[in-house]
Nucleic acid binder design. Structure first.
Length: 723
DNA sequence: CCAGTGTGTCATAAG
DNA sequence: GCCTTATGACACACT
């Protein structure tokens, strides 16, 4: 991390100097003399710009601590972890855990206001206000940058994005982060009223030439650096240096831009896992730096800038992009970074495209290059075909798909319903199953109501009272003792009574006072479902109907049929107590009960079987209820994870938007930088003839007619201002 | 008649 | 070793 942070630090220092120099070149005396913001904010910002994920919280709750190996929760745990992993794998999102706080540390609304109100190349990323303000500020910034461009850089499409969840605190935090960044950049640009010489001295003091350890790049980078070191006074370089002292600074600034861009892309890298690295399989993508440079090169100038009316930096940088662009980062970083330009590729040359893409529900257009509908592209594309087009487009697909997914799951207005649909389709489970009328969960609430009836004697109590306390059992047993011989007349009523109706439980003092055993939410009484089934069967077979028609009490055979087999057996064996007692009495009391009565072996065996089966029946009901509960919990977990996934995708979109805005500012500054370059005769360089190349030794003004191979050679026009 | 569901029961393992 | 609980498997009734 120190290694990475060093890159951040160095790059950001360069960024600071870069912006300062731009302020000098543009003579932005009107800039606010804001105090230089602490660099650690910039350093921490990109690396901490992502909202802290809540996965760790999920882990805390799901890591299985305290789950008994036999517990059904263990299944829940594993299933939930699996689902969580699946959800994680659905996206490449890897959200570092500390980013957001750093972004939220400093916010200076005044600075933001000033940044947006100031003209000039202030990198006003403020979107804390209305998005229209953002657009206005963007446009004003562009125009104020000395560019007469009519390109508005309209981001009106962000309205839709911003409107996704305007009340979202997270988004607010991100906006604040943008405010901070805006402030930082504005301050950086504003605090520089230094002269060019001062800036150069500052640069030299900060980065003694050839002493930048972060530039220990391999391959073309080192070659280029070495070559430039060895030939600082090549003919071209001398000529330009002698005449263009001011242009040197911007050239170097562009190299700083490159650093910044790399940092930003590294920020993207944090969002995306290395899985996307495999997308850099394009043959043109020799190394990550090529793609990285392609990002820079993808900046398209506004149609009417001060210097470049026809040529865009996009094409200008192409010759060096494919192979020769040195990288400031190590290959492994670059390999990941290289994919990022697709995510944040700017397309400012056509505001309508941006508008359309943002306004549309399809976000893919956001990162797709605009069609060749701008004159800049039309005039130069044939000359300088973009070698990264295919690469970018290919690598874009992944992000596009992700973004589409984000739109579907994170931004859709029907998100809730959609998530529900997905849940239903994915889980393959139905919550309805748990609401079955016959499910124990429902019956549990009325398990005792079966033993009571509004039309039934209050003293009646049939077996199936589960979990009754010993106190209530006494009364219940008393009633049951009599019920064994006398409950038959009431039985049909009991059978017809809906055991799901808890209201029937009220008003029965004996049953209201019973203490229920709520283990597993109080299973259905043992004979309850049987009774219900038997009642249904009896009714279904027309017996109830017959009884109602005949106004007769239920016949004995129906009653017997309603009774469970064990009940019938108990009656057949003349068992002197109820099955309820047999089943639910504690073992001591049960043994006492058996001791009180002189029972033969058959009776004792039957009683023990009744007890065993009765307990097992309740256990089975509990077990099934737990299964249902587990399924419900899993479904809820899936819903939660889907919500979290949508939230994370939305977060990702927000950060992409922020990065895109920042890159847009970078683009404008690059344009300004190029516009400020003057040759020995004081004329601006034509973008059709020159382009800016970023290298470890600074920004180089390269002639376009130079081949890619030549760009690596030390003979290239060295516009690097001496550090 | 068949499939799905709910329930009871048995066997078994584990506490 | 007994009792209780949990659970898979099976059968049966019912829709």
């Amino acid at each position: 991390m120190l290694y990475l942070k060093k890159y951040f630090t160095e790059g950001l220092i360069q960024f600071t100097i870069l912006l300062s120099l731009i302020g000098v070149r543009l003579d932005l005396d009107t800039y606010l003399n804001n105090q230089l913001p602490p660099l650690h904010e910039i350093i921490l910002g990109p690396s901490s710009a992502y909202t802290q994920t809540q996965f760790h919280n999920l882990r805390n709750t799901l890591d299985g601590y305290g789950i008994h190996p036999k517990s059904v929760d263990l299944d829940h745990f594993f299933a939930t972890r699996r689902l969580l992993n699946q959800v994680r794998s659905l996206d490449h999102l890897r959200v570092p855990s500390t980013e957001l706080s750093a972004w939220l540390v400093h916010r200076d609304p005044e600075t933001v206001v000033s940044a947006t109100s100031q003209s000039g190349p202030s990198i006003a990323l403020d979107n804390g206000g209305s998005l229209e303000d953002v657009n206005n500020s963007d446009a004003s910034a562009m125009r104020g940058a000395g560019s007469a461009s009519e390109t508005t850089y309209s981001l009106s499409g962000e309205d839709s994005l911003g409107a996704v969840a305007p009340e979202d605190s997270q988004e607010q935090g991100e906006r604040e982060s943008s405010d901070d960044l805006s402030k930082e950049l504005t301050s950086l640009g504003a605090q520089t009223s230094l002269s060019m010489q001062e800036c150069l001295r500052l640069l030299e003091a900060t980065f003694p030439f050839g002493e930048e350890p972060e530039f220990q790049a391999t391959g073309p980078t080192s070659q280029l650096r070495d070559s430039t070191e060895e030939t600082p006074t090549t003919s071209q370089g001398i000529a330009l240096q002698a005449t263009l002292s001011q242009s040197d600074t911007p050239l170097d600034l562009e190299q700083q831009w490159q650093d910044i861009m790399s940092i930003m892309e590294l920020q993207d890298m944090e969002v995306n896992t290395a899985e996307n690295v495999t997308m850099n399989d394009d043959p043109n993508n020799n190394n990550a730096s090529t793609t990285e440079s392609a990002t820079i090169g993808s900046f398209e100038l506004p149609q009417s800038t001060l210097i470049n009316q026809d040529v865009s930096l996009h094409q200008a940088s192409l010759p060096s992009c494919s192979q020769d662009f040195p990288t400031l980062f190590n290959p492994e970083l670059d390999s990941t970074v290289g994919q990022q330009p697709t995510l944040v590729r700017l397309s400012s040359s056509n505001s309508s495209n941006i508008n359309s893409t943002f306004g549309a529900t399809n976000l893919t257009g956001l990162f797709l290059p605009p069609p060749l509908n701008s004159t800049t592209n039309l005039t130069t594309t044939p000359v300088l075909p973009d070698p990264f087009s295919s690469l970018l487009e290919e690598s874009m697909l992944d992000e596009i798909s992700l973004l589409d997914l984000a739109m579907e799951e994170g931004f859709s207005q029907d998100q809730a319903s959609q998530l529900k649909d997905e849940l239903d389709s994915d889980s393959g489970l139905s919550l309805d199953s748990s609401h079955s009328p016959a499910s124990p969960s429902n019956s549990e609430t009325s398990c005792s109501s079966a033993a009571s009836s509004s039309s039934t004697s209050a003293t009646f109590s049939e077996e199936g009272a589960v979990g009754y306390s010993t106190d209530s059992e006494a009364a219940a047993a008393e009633a049951e003792e009599g019920a064994v011989g006398g409950y038959q007349p009431e039985y049909s009523k009991l059978c017809r009574m809906s055991y799901q109706d808890p209201s029937q439980f009220h008003g029965i003092p004996q049953l209201e006072n019973v203490n229920h055993n709520h283990t597993y939410n109080l299973p259905l009484p043992s004979s309850y479902s049987e009774r219900s089934q038997l009642s249904a069967s009896c009714s279904k077979k027309g017996r109830d109907k017959q009884m109602q028609q005949t106004k007769l009490q239920p016949p004995q055979d129906c009653m017997d049929r309603q009774s469970s087999r064990d009940e019938r057996r108990a009656r057949a064996m003349d068992i002197p107590f109820s099955n309820d007692k047999i089943i639910n009495l504690p073992v001591e009391e049960f043994n006492e009960l058996l001791a009180k009565h002189h029972l033969n072996e058959d009776q004792l065996a039957l009683i023990r079987d009744i007890r065993r089966r009765g307990k097992n029946k309740m256990a089975a009901q509990n077990c099934r209820k737990r299964k249902l509960d587990t399924i419900m919990k899993l479904e809820q977990g899936v819903q939660d994870l889907q919500r979290e996934k949508a939230h994370l995708l939305k977060e990702k979109m927000e950060y992409c938007k922020c990065i895109r805005q920042t890159k847009q500012k970078v683009q404008s500054l690059s344009q300004e930088l190029f516009a400020q370059l003057r040759d020995e005769e004081g004329r601006p360089y034509s973008a059709s003839e020159y382009f800016l190349q970023y290298g470890p030794d600074g920004v180089l003004l390269m002639p376009r007619n130079m081949s890619t191979e030549q760009s690596n050679k030390p003979e290239k026009k060295q516009k690097d201002k001496k550090k």
